[in-house]
Nucleic acid binder design. Structure first.
Length: 274
DNA sequence: AAGAGACCCTGGATGC
DNA sequence: TGCATCCAGGGTCTCT
């Protein structure tokens, strides 16, 4: 499941492969992947465009085009970016292909078809509602205190709300709460100042380390050259229910919060009593 | 307004 | 062995 570190890794690799490349033609093999504009307009407007830059905002890939417009892509659950010779046979889950002028194909593969692309005049049309980046100074304990004030929802659910902070998904939310020793069911508004500070630090740490390890590959996530990430070897609680806590040895538990599988240490992350 | 839940999808895992 | 069912979860939408 690509989250911020995975999308960051993909953006950096993609930049080296498609910046200054021209899109000669476009193949849409499953039209539902194009969110906007309509598919016919999308293909007509993308044909002949040159990519001038690739960046990331939250979990979105942002590609600046030579006509001033923007191509945004979201990989959702199983989306992958691949760049490979056009002669390579299509995979049935490659739904969108940009045929580059240098003989390579830039392909959007997405088994579960949740991913989307947007061709827009201003990135804010899609990413305008996102909260701050976790590594931006704006994401501070004071900011968290302000946006969490009065919130009764579990902190785990709130960390997944992209309007509060951009880029966290299920894996890094669980890992950050573990590192900060905060129970995932704690009401967001109940966190003490010291806990808010610990949470901000934990989120920054886990995101920074995961970027350095080029993301977490559990199944679908691959870099554009097909290689996998390494952070799966650093996961301390995610999908480790039944195993001993790496810090205290208690048995890690799993529960469902907001419909999402959630992993934590019942001893290090107490719900009450401290 | 905030929070809960349905929905979109498919393939792998599980159960009988 | 084969078939049916369950589960995974990012984001959007609806309902209360």
């Amino acid at each position: 499941m690509p989250e911020l570190p995975e999308v960051q890794t993909i953006a950096m690799a993609l930049a080296g492969l498609v910046v200054e490349r021209t899109i000669d033609d476009v193949s849409v093999r499953w039209p539902g992947i194009v969110d906007r504009p309509d598919v016919t307009t999308f293909v007509a407007m993308m044909r002949g465009r040159r990519v001038t830059a690739v960046s990331r905002r939250g979990k979105y890939l942002q590609c600046a085009l030579d006509n001033g417009r923007w191509l945004l892509l979201h990989l959702r659950m199983t989306g992958e970016m691949r760049v490979l010779p056009a002669a390579v046979a299509f995979d049935p889950h490659e739904h969108l292909i940009f045929h580059l002028e240098n003989g390579l194909d830039w392909r959007f593969k997405d088994t579960r078809k949740f991913g989307r692309v947007y061709l827009i005049a201003d990135p804010a049309e899609v990413v305008g509602q996102l909260g701050p980046e976790p590594l931006d100074p704006a994401f501070s304990p004071a900011y968290l205190a302000r946006v969490l004030a009065g919130r009764q929802a579990p902190i785990k659910s709130l960390l997944l709300d992209q309007r509060l902070v951009a880029g966290l998904g299920n894996i890094y939310a669980d890992e950050a709460l573990f590192r900060a020793r905060i129970h995932p069911l704690r009401a967001g508004g109940s966190l003490e100042p010291a806990e808010l500070a610990a949470l901000v630090e934990a989120i920054r740490d886990v995101i920074t380390q995961a970027i350095a390890e080029m993301g977490t590959t559990l199944r679908d996530y691959h870099r554009p050259d097909g290689s996998v990430g390494r952070f799966q070897n650093r996961l301390q609680v995610f999908r480790r229910q039944g195993e001993p806590c790496p810090r205290c040895g208690a048995i890690l538990q799993r529960l469902v919060v907001g419909g999402r599988s959630t992993h934590f240490c019942p001893q290090d992350q107490p719900l009450s009593g401290e």
